[in-house]
Design a protein around this nucleic acid. Structure first.
Lengths: 268, 268
DNA sequence: TAGTGGTCTAGACCACGGC
DNA sequence: CCGTGGTCTAGACCACTAC
């Protein structure tokens, strides 16, 4: 017994005790233990120390190595499994999965939170920000008058936090809703979130259409592709509670750098 | 202590002891306790006894009512949360979600049932059915031994009921699971459904990866595309309850003929 | 038979939300 | 301050896989 530890963080933080898989410098306080464990493992995966196909040590061994209980290790593994990093099979073990950069729509529900999560893990590096008349297609989608209505268009590179580019995005926002858009925060704060905050309009949903296309000059230039090279095209229409469109975005991704993963499970 | 229970099922099954939320008739043996708890709760939700917006009893109370530990209750709640039935907030409690609206309805494909629906509305016109050794990639995905294991491969055209072709599909099934596959029914009965029926294995989920690629000779021939023309590529890995892969399928669609639409709505 | 993940219990402290 | 979900420990048995 005696689960006492006189803790300070959520549920307590760890004290190094194990060996091989222990926390290197010092466990962060204030962060859930299982997240620290998951981060450690994810780091080993991202760094290539654990390659796709590799088998993880048994849970009990991990628990011992990290100096945590097996339950905590399992929580960490579940976290990584949910995010596509691992696969586990009873009686066999857990193995590292091949995970391209991509949007994971998880368990069954693709909630908008997945999108938020995804956006917060990536960076939009603006290439151009212009105000212009809405073209026919954009006007149609945003419920504006073609040519007469004006939109703010933001083109930029989709990057990982480490700078790796995995896509090119064009975002269209009606000028009226783009008032408070700050160029300085575009790279880190999702545009739809800024629009939400500035306009008071709440984004209630997103309609995504996934298709394929060939690279045009713009993509060739910014993504270093060959002309007409196949790219994954994802267009998103954000709309407010009443159904009014708020923002339209098109993203283009080289298939080698991005994959859209959807998990469907048999419902009840 | 004394966690002994001399059980027969996985981790033991429950014995009615609680009151309000106890198991009515008799808990099924052989089914995980947390699934039985989840089923009970889901029943109350589906029947309307627990309506959207309603708050669930606290976890400790549920645990007491069902006569299980809080951990088991939490596992059940997580199960339901993952499936869009519930939302939980620290300090507040768990509430029933409006699953109709809260879940992204996907006009094309959204849950596994939509996939069934989709498959039943379309036709697979077989071009070739062959038995062959599993290649490296397919063996990896289906958890088979490369070259030694054999698979049945079915290539065919995806058509609307009216005959319009909108894609090309390659399906791989381990020979052991393909025994009862009848060529005559391939066009109308989804292959995974036939595998299910013949093998007794139940498909529990599907992992879909959406990407883009260029048309190869096979696609040029059967879909009438230009070489290297961009196509939408969707790979599906069907797996059974334990996670064992059952079937792998690759579909290729010209962007002009097929679009993947996903609708996300703001949950809590 | 041994190893590994899956399930379960009993009990405890912490953080958040509202009173 | 209290109630509720979130996290964590320690220990145990079961089921599936492979040897």
């Amino acid at each position: 017994m005696e689960p006492k530890r006189s803790k300070e963080a959520s549920g307590g933080s760890g004290r190094p005790r194990g060996r091989v898989f222990a926390f290197p410098p010092s466990p962060q306080r204030g962060v859930a233990l299982y997240l620290q464990v998951a981060d450690q493992l994810r780091g080993r995966i991202d760094s290539g120390e654990l390659a796709p196909g590799d088998q993880l040590p048994p849970e009990v061994e991990l628990a011992d190595g990290f100096g945590v209980s097996r339950h905590t290790v399992r929580q960490a593994l579940r976290h990584l499994r949910d995010r596509g990093y691992l696969a586990s099979r009873q009686g066999k073990g857990s193995t590292v999965r091949d995970r391209k950069r991509g949007l994971q729509v998880n368990p069954v529900i693709g909630s908008i939170n997945d999108l938020v999560q995804f956006a917060s893990e990536t960076v939009l590096k603006p290439v151009s920000v212009v105000e212009e008349p809405a073209g026919a297609e954009v006007a149609e989608l945003l419920d504006l008058e073609p040519e007469r209505s004006r939109v703010v268009r933001i083109n930029g590179l989709r990057c990982e936090r480490d700078g790796a580019v995995f896509g090119y995005t064009k975002v269209y926002v009606p000028v009226e809703l783009a008032k408070g858009l700050r160029a300085e925060t575009i790279h880190s704060v999702p545009i739809y979130a800024q629009v939400e905050r500035n306009s008071g309009i709440e984004v209630a949903g997103v309609e995504q259409r996934i298709s394929a296309g060939g690279a045009d000059e713009e993509l060739v230039e910014h993504l270093g592709l060959e002309p007409h090279e196949p790219v994954l095209k994802i267009s998103r229409l954000y709309y407010a509670t009443g159904g009014a469109p708020v923002e339209f975005a098109e993203s283009f991704h080289p298939p080698s750098a991005f994959e859209y993963v959807i998990h469907l499970r048999k419902g009840f």
